Simulated assay, not measured.
Amino acid sequence: MTTAVVVDGLHKTYGAVRAVDGVSFTVEHGEIFALLTSDRRAPERAPERSAP
């Protein structure tokens, strides 16, 4: 399979709270992938994307 998405070292903060700390994953073409919150719901918006 070919790689469709690569996330490496993702961080997300809300003020002084670091909600995501160094998450990394790869999604291959044809795979189904979802991000869920602690209460098993999909987040209401995607994290902001920063340029490499």
Rank of each mutant, 00 (worst) to 15 (best):
M1I: 10
M1R: 06
T2W: 14
T3I: 12
T3V: 12
T3M: 07
V5C: 08
V5N: 13
V6N: 09
V6A: 13
V6T: 15
V6P: 03
V7R: 05
V7H: 01
V7M: 02
D8N: 15
D8W: 01
L10V: 13
H11R: 14
K12D: 10
K12M: 13
K12N: 04
T13Q: 00
T13S: 14
T13D: 03
Y14H: 08
G15H: 00
G15Y: 03
G15L: 02
A16P: 12
A16C: 06
V17Y: 02
R18D: 02
R18N: 13
R18L: 01
R18V: 07
A19Q: 04
A19G: 05
V20D: 03
V20S: 08
V20L: 08
V20E: 00
D21C: 00
G22Q: 07
G22I: 06
V23E: 05
S24F: 01
S24N: 02
F25E: 09
F25Q: 09
F25L: 13
T26K: 07
T26N: 09
T26C: 00
V27Q: 00
E28G: 09
H29N: 08
G30V: 08
E31P: 02
E31H: 08
I32F: 06
F33R: 07
F33G: 01
F33S: 06
A34V: 14
L35Q: 11
L35R: 00
L35H: 04
L36H: 02
L36A: 04
T37F: 00
T37D: 05
S38K: 07
S38T: 13
D39L: 06
D39A: 03
R40L: 15
R41C: 09
R41W: 05
R41Y: 01
A42W: 05
P43Q: 01
P43V: 06
P43C: 00
P43R: 00
P43M: 01
E44L: 10
E44H: 12
R45Y: 12
R45Q: 12
R45W: 15
R45I: 14
A46T: 11
P47N: 04
E48Q: 14
R49I: 15
R49Y: 02
R49M: 11
S50V: 14
S50Y: 12
S50T: 15
A51G: 05
